[in-house]
Design a protein around this nucleic acid. Sequence first.
DNA 1: CCCGCGCCACATTGA
DNA 2: GTGGCGCGGG
Length: 727
Amino acid sequence: MDTNELNPQQLQAVRHTEGPLMLVAGAGSGKTRAITFRILHMIRDKGIAPENILAITFTNKAAGEMRERVLGQMGEGGRAPWISTFHSLCLRLLRQHMEFSGYTKDFVIYDAQDQLSLVKKCMKAAQVNEEAFPPKTILNHISGFKNDYQLPEHIKLDALPYGHKLKAAHVYPHYQNALKENNALDFDDLLMMTVKLFKTNKELCDHYNDRFRYILVDEFQDTNLTQYHLIQLLSRAHHNVCVVGDDDQSIYRWRGANLENLLHFEKDFPGTTVIKLEENYRSTQTILNAAGAVVRQNAARREKNLWTRNESGEPILYYRAEDEIDEARAVCERIHQWVQDGASLNDIAILYRTNAQSRVLEDQLRHLGVTYQVIGGLKFYERKEIKDILSYLRVILNPNDSVSLKRIVNTPVRGIGKTSVDKIEAFCGEHHLNLLEGLRRAAEIVGAGPAKKIAQFVAMMDRFHQVAEDSSAVDLLKEVFEKTGYLTALQKENTQEAKSRLENLNELYSAVEQFVDIDRKGSLREFLDTTTLVADLDNLDDSRGVLALMTLHTCKGLEFDSVCIIGFENGLLPHASSLSSNDEYEEERRLCYVGFTRARKRLMVSNARRRRIYGSTFTYQPSDFINAIPREVMTMESSAPSMTASSSYSPSYASKSGGDEWSLPAGAPPPATDTGFAVGTKVLHPKFGSGVVVNREGSDGDMKVVVFFKGAGKKKLAVAHANLIVV
DNA sequence: CCCGCGCCACATTGA
DNA sequence: GTGGCGCGGG
């Protein structure tokens, strides 16, 4: 290890191994290098056993990279410390110790889809109206409880005002019971149950305090309260915790991330040493200027001074497009040009606020013949055909999983309809049976026809169970493919869609093959675990020469030579849903900051005068974040302001910079100052509650506004009829 | 009693 | 673009 490669602050962090440490690491400040050296220093110079070190990262990809770097430096026979994400860590702990409070070790993990279907069922049972209380909103609130370590028994109903949160609090205990009946945990449970486990079992907690004597937590600014409790519990004997983070990069508030953890840490861990890494090694001065200019407008932040010795580099390119197609074209053509000039696709990324924005880009890239990879969006393991097959595997392992069972009982169609299943479910409720047991007694419950089909289904599942015991997971999968008739049904369809589904199933087969070591027991379960816990980012292959497309959230922790960020419009970035809350608006700024600081050399930003989103056209204003960038570090290009709407395909690097196009470009609608309901106005609606105007058209009598409501989403309303109250 | 079609409302970010 | 639902045919 050559400590000459470290600056004084990094070196100080590396040498500080005993007692609490907070490493405030600005973007691109050599954080990973410092962390890796620190672990190596602990193992090699301090003689600390790797087993005694626990490092928690944000993604599996980051964990893998850190493990590789540590092992790479240690040479032959080196053992790696335990490096994983919060969720994988908790899953591993729970698999070992979960046999308490009614769960077995074969519990499954429910993803968002499963959660939603379970929450709907609970809402029906609790007689909560799905119209007035969208299941998604209820689920979000329940998730919020779990992120704050509020168990159902902790919640004081009379302390909550009437509203969605109160309803969620009513549904919450039903939902937890239902999860337990299904022998299932959701994502948030993984964390919450682990904390509960350690709180109720002091001995076990002591055991792990002894085991993990040195703990490191990366991306600390994005931890929630439950995760914070976990860190406290795991370190209460030794306080050897090093947290690494940057408040400017906190972008998961909506998922329960709690910036205050940064403040609490210094109180809860007395004597914390704080070290700031402020020298940026990644980006040009220009890029840092722009990023700093945006994030500096936030009131709630620790002042820091990120600086670099790097040269100022190219100015930021700002392209103002006619519409989203023109925007995509300009960005993709520019990238094409960079590649022609010798850039590698590996070193370029296109970032956007919402997944839906990728589609237009993909069309353009295909057209230009550029190979690309979309990270995120519909995940592989969430595709219908994959989830169907996985549901079979899940039920085979865990017969209590009624959510999966209901999914497959008539997939592919085999004559077991909703009516029969409903009857059996009702029967199960009365007799305290799980759904599979109910199906076994179908003859007592439904008519002879359906009963026979159900009996066949149950017999098939029993055979699968036998196969699972006797043979490998690969054989089992083959068996499921064939005996369920799933493949045959798809082959018969003979459509393009069916073909692509078959391809996906093929891919699933290879994935299982790769994963499963034939003789190892329990490997099917491990495979299923990974299917719920891998992030899409974990599959980003940065060695294949492929352009990466992803959201601003996903890009955290990555870096590229050149970065393009599209959709800089008020309403998209910052997103409409953030306009009514200052905290959320500030998070959008940080999101922008994270995006900018991914770039080493080049940054391109863009927006569009008109944009189609989900069928309707929006004319958002250029983003305030663009206006915050100092003009001297930016070059503007614009499409020729077109007279006809259809001319957006014409060559369009027409008007170069200058002029006073900056804040109010041609083609934008006139500023709304007159009759009220300007973009950004907060309003109240009798049914949808509070929202923000994000778009406006027409005037006076027939004025229509698009309002973004929390929970209800975007609504287009006629002002004359909607009874909107301006707040 | 099951199935498939067509209609409808829905759509931020994700381990 | 997708999933949920209601209806009429088998």
